[in-house]
Amino acid sequence: MSETVQYPDRDRLEDVADAILVGRAVDGDTGAFETLIRRHGPLMRAYTARIVGSMADADDVVQDAFHTAWRRLPELRDPAAVRPWLMRIASRLAFSSLRRKPAEVELPDLESALPADTQPENIAVRNAQLRALSAALDTLPEDQRRCWLLREVGELSYDDIAQEMELPTATVRGKLARARASIYAQMEGWR
């Protein structure tokens, strides 16, 4: 990617498949890469925010993830699988960032986005649900929580999670089943 290329149809890139965008970005089309950022950045931000504990730290992680992705994009074997690839990069950087934090520093509460319906009572209920889910996630063992986040927030496949965590797929399925059962039991009052 030595030279930046701009294509005249940049405004129409929103409807282009990921695989094509990756190919164009590898050829130096920054507009195609920007489209990938707009398309996958919000999910990466939400996922990493849950790991690192704040939106500000998540923004740093996502920025680093996209910087890494831009440099390593030619190494991507399956351009259609760019989303799981980006999520793996973000996951590694988020957990690395978390390991660098001093152990005695408490992580702040996760900032939550407002729902579309901005009635105060709906906001209060939604925030209470998110706090309950966050508390339920905090009770899980680290490996179960990580599996659950990769699957439910990161939307990775069982095989991608197994690869990311270096575990057999059957083990990932078991950890997810235990995590879901625990969360289901703890969230009983919200159904």
Rank of each mutant, 00 (worst) to 15 (best):
G23S: 08
A90R: 01
R12D: 14
E111V: 08
R72Q: 13
M87P: 04
P168D: 12
V52W: 04
G41K: 04
T171Y: 01
R145W: 04
V61N: 01
D9L: 07
P84F: 07
F33N: 05
T48A: 04
E3W: 13
T118H: 04
R71T: 07
D109A: 14
K175L: 15
N127K: 10
E106I: 02
A162T: 09
G189V: 04
Q163D: 12
R50N: 14
A90Y: 04
R180P: 04
D9M: 01
T171K: 10
V125Y: 06
L133Q: 09
T139Q: 15
D78F: 08
L86N: 00
S112T: 15
R131C: 06
W148V: 00
D11W: 13
R99M: 03
N127E: 14
M165P: 07
V82F: 08
P79W: 10
S97L: 05
Y7N: 14
D9W: 13
A179R: 07
L114T: 01
R92Q: 10
H40K: 01
R50K: 13
G23E: 14
V61R: 02
Y7Q: 15
F95S: 04
R151D: 01
M55A: 14
E155C: 10
E155L: 11
H67W: 03
T30K: 13
I20V: 15
D138G: 11
A80T: 06
A103S: 13
E3R: 15
Q144T: 04
D78T: 11
E75F: 05
R71D: 12
A90I: 00
T171V: 09
Q63H: 14
A32P: 06
Y158T: 10
T35C: 13
E34N: 15
R72F: 06
W190G: 04
